[in-house]
Design a protein around this nucleic acid. Structure first.
Length: 823
DNA sequence: GGTCCTGCGTTACC
DNA sequence: ACCGGTAACGCAGGACC
């Protein structure tokens, strides 16, 4: 039998002590298919140099006799083969050791302890990674598959008959084929419960949304709405939930925060009702693995918690202040959750069930639409990193980078480095932090006619240009090697040297860098969600590489490499600052990979010519780029001291587009009033080039504050709770409010945004703490005029006016010949 | 009882 | 434990006068 097949979910199983891959996907006809494939399980014993051939043969014989029994399972070494391989860029003889069973590779590896063995490697890769590497059956890519149809076959213990698929194939041949668009079957779900404590109270309703498919399952109330199905009790509802999913037959089951809430909740409630939540295609129940975060896996169906993907991969493209479903959906879809106020109360009393059903349905609708919207990003990242969608949708940045590297090692005949063990991680974490990038302290002022240059993927281009990596680091200075700038490392001034022979790590990055450029161009030429997603995926990987090298959990960790990259970053940033000054420009500001400067008498063309000249002199693949030309820019003083503040500036380009960085305007822990006022002031100053209109505006705002004309929603301050309440040493207003909320019975989780305002407080007998005046938004009270003037609005604008030598407080007092308090 | 400094805490930039 | 260093700045806590 021959079919076109796209792999989606990867798994493996044991049959007669051997490991087999079990891959679920679709055929081009939309059939759900399982394919079964044998996969050789092996790892490597890398040998010390000058071990004699005779000795090697002896070792191979010994290794081939290793046998392990674990319960009923017997694991053996099947065979061994000798190869010339590279490991960390050096060539070695290595014995490839084939074992029967994946699960025992680790134990067998630990039995190979000959003194001639330098390292044992690749026993710590997952089965799926090994399989994909070996068979090149990449996720979400179409293949032409030839195989033997299993039909109630005895082979593999009748696996096909217990599997909920259209057919099951035993693979004979995998061939590449043309790619056709693939749209997965997505089903979104969301539950509503009586309380929020995990599994404690019944699930009231469950919504399910797919293509032309909308359902709410409940047992609480009958409804006139056709999408609502009412059952006798929670048990029946849960049973129907499983049935509905099986019937809809989705490739992807998606929720929002469903790893942490919906799926584990469902599992507990199923247990309480003594029923099986057998969602898996093999009728297995969801399995949860505990890391820092709970992860819910369903066999054969890719369970995605969209929040996790958005948190690690997508948040950087979002403006939303929180990653709540409501805000993210509004930003990406222009659609919100429905307002259902009974949920905001601590106890649900006689809710309007019709509204509640609608509310529940809407959450799944949003999750469904968001998944469709983010599908190009999930798809591209999965194809590029070459790990299953399930992993990609939850992977952190280091994980994405590392898997990208692992799946690109074979070109260099490289054996993968091992994952650091616990002890090693501990050691790495104790290492002193290395010095980071350089930030140039600006001289405060309003500047005209500016431009910004920045380096393209600076860290990555440095790694490639100077061949920097764990494997290319030389122990001591060598002739004809790359030399890092002087840097401090372990409390000593030193330099690091890197071989000139290109290493596999920089070479993989070089390819990544080139692809990043190519796909950015492709997107510019042909902008659509797919080209955008591809461009973004490479951008993300490229931007995360340097952080990866310095991350304690990385296989290719090297603090020496990381410190060297940063030393180059500082050097080149300073070099460009100087070069611009030398060429008759004035450098105003710089941060890491960018330099802002005044053009002075120079034209745009002269500036671009200079850019080209600089580029000709830059080493390797390093490249300086024009970010933009700007009409004006403003830099202010720090609130304390008379120096210019770093990481705070505002610019207006030639098309009157304003870019604000670091100012309170962009900080969510300031009230809207202060943020909006500052934004307006910056806008007026940047557009007009002077402070006149801004002064008129601030006077108007101050008057409004004084007259209590500001609505409460403009005065709310939002601060995130970053740790459990008990761990706070310093009780700041938001901690105080969180405690108050907890006393009221409102559940407080880490990560929650705490909202409050500052009210007037009459008893002024002792030193007044702000937290004593903090109130919940629904607590009655008058806002504290003095606080909002002196701690919010005026501080947000005073150093802007100071650029024009105006002391805003004095200006306001002087003008009116009155004290501020009488204003 | 006021003033100043320091550390905690959050959020931003790159 | 899940990319990391640089930086601003409010508030509380405590030393000091």
């Amino acid at each position: 039998m021959e079919i076109k097949f796209i792999p989606i979910d990867y798994d493996y199983f044991d049959w007669k002590s051997k490991s087999y891959a079990k891959i679920i996907g679709r055929s081009d006809k939309g059939k759900r298919v399982c394919i079964i494939d044998a996969c050789e399980i092996y790892f490597w014993a890398i040998l010390n140099s000058n071990v004699s051939s005779k000795k090697i043969k002896q070792m191979q014989k010994k290794i081939e006799k290793i046998e392990i029994q674990k319960g009923t399972r017997i694991s053996r070494v099947l065979k061994t083969e000798l190869y010339n391989k590279n490991y960390l860029g050096k060539s070695y003889k290595a014995i490839k050791i084939f074992v029967t069973n994946f699960k025992d590779a680790h134990s067998i590896a630990s039995k190979i302890d000959f003194k001639e063995v330098y390292k044992r490697r690749e026993y710590d890769l997952t089965f799926t990674t090994k399989y994909i590497l070996q068979k090149k059956l990449n996720p979400l890519t179409w293949y032409q598959i030839t195989g033997e149809l299993l039909n109630n076959s005895e082979e593999f213990g009748g696996i096909d008959s217990n599997l909920d698929v259209d057919f099951c194939l035993k693979i004979k041949e995998i061939k590449k084929t043309e790619q056709i668009p693939f749209k997965p079957k997505i089903l979104a779900y969301d539950i509503e419960t009586e309380g929020i404590e995990m599994g404690k109270t019944p699930i009231l309703m469950i919504s399910l949304v797919g293509e032309n498919y909308r359902k709410v399952l409940t047992w609480k109330k009958k409804s006139r709405k056709s999408y609502v199905e009412t059952f006798k009790d929670e048990e029946e509802m849960l049973e129907e939930f499983v049935k509905s999913i099986k019937k809809y037959d989705p490739d992807i089951l998606v929720g929002y925060y469903s790893d942490g809430f919906d799926l584990p909740y469902l599992k507990i409630r199923a247990e309480k009702n003594k029923i099986k939540l057998n969602l898996g295609l093999d009728n297995s129940q969801p399995k949860f693995s505990r890391g820092r975060l709970l992860t819910g896996k369903i066999k054969g169906i890719t369970h995605i918690d969209l929040l996790r993907f958005i948190q690690t991969v997508y948040a950087q493209y979002l403006k939303s202040e929180t990653l709540s479903l409501n805000e993210v959906a509004f930003e990406l879809l222009g659609e919100k959750k429905l307002d259902f106020s009974p949920l905001k109360q601590t106890k649900l009393k006689n809710p309007n069930w019709e509204d509640f059903f609608k509310y529940n349905l809407q959450d799944s609708i949003l999750a469904y639409k968001l998944t469709e919207k983010l599908w190009p990003d999930l798809l591209e990242l999965t194809k590029i990193v070459q790990e299953p969608l399930f992993n990609i949708s939850r992977a952190g940045l280091s994980n994405l980078v590392e898997n990208y590297i692992i799946h690109n090692l074979s070109k260099y005949n490289e054996i993968a480095e091992k994952h650091p063990i616990h002890e090693e991680i501990g050691k790495r974490r104790e290492q002193k932090r290395v010095e980071g990038a350089f930030v140039f302290r600006p001289i405060p002022g309003l500047y005209e006619n500016l431009a910004i240059f920045d380096f393209t993927s600076m860290h990555t281009s440095i790694i490639v240009s100077f061949n920097i990596s764990k494997a290319t680091l030389l122990e001591k200075k060598q002739k004809d090697s790359y030399e890092s700038p002087e840097l401090e490392f372990e409390n000593k001034k030193t330099k690091f040297y890197f071989s000139k022979k290109p290493g596999f790590f920089p070479l993989i990055l070089k390819e990544l860098f080139e692809k990043r450029k190519r796909f950015k161009q492709e997107y510019k030429k042909n902008p659509n969600p797919l080209t955008k997603a591809r461009s973004n995926a490479f951008k993300l990987l490229s931007a995360s590489i340097h952080g990866y090298q310095g991350f304690f959990g990385a296989r290719y960790y090297s603090l020496e490499a990381s410190a060297s990259v940063l030393a180059f970053v500082r050097k080149f940033n300073k070099q460009i600052i100087e070069e611009m000054n030398k060429q008759g420009y004035n450098s105003i500001y710089a941060d890491t990979d960018s330099v802002a400067f005044k053009l002075n008498q120079h034209t745009k063309k002269q500036t671009l010519d200079l850019l080209e000249k600089i580029n000709q002199q830059l080493p390797g693949i390093m490249e300086l780029d024009l970010e933009d030309f700007y009409k004006r820019g403003i830099w202010v003083t720090k609130r304390t001291g008379e120096f210019g503040a770093k990481k705070k500036y505002a610019l207006i380009n030639k098309k009157n587009k304003i870019k604000i960085r670091g100012f309170e305007t962009v900080r969510r822990d300031w009230c809207n009033l202060a943020r909006k006022t500052q934004n307006k002031i910056l806008n007026l100053i940047l557009t007009t080039g002077n402070e006149k209109k801004a002064l008129t505006y601030i006077k108007k705002i101050i008057k409004k504050i004084k007259n209590r004309e500001i609505p409460l929603d403009q005065l709310l301050i939002k601060t995130q709770l970053k740790k459990p309440l008990s761990e706070y040493k310093s009780i700041n207003p938001h901690v105080m409010i969180a405690k108050k909320m907890q006393e009221k019975g409102i559940p407080i989780d880490v990560g929650r945004l705490i909202t409050y305002y500052i009210s007037e407080n009459k008893n002024k007998n002792k030193r007044e703490l702000i937290r004593e005046k903090a109130k919940l938004p629904d607590e009655p009270g008058k806002y504290d005029i003095e606080y909002y003037l002196n701690n919010q609005v005026l501080p947000s604008v005073e150093n802007i006016f100071e650029v024009f030598k105006i002391n805003i407080k004095e200006f306001i007092e002087g003008k009116k010949q009155k004290k501020l308090s009488e204003f």
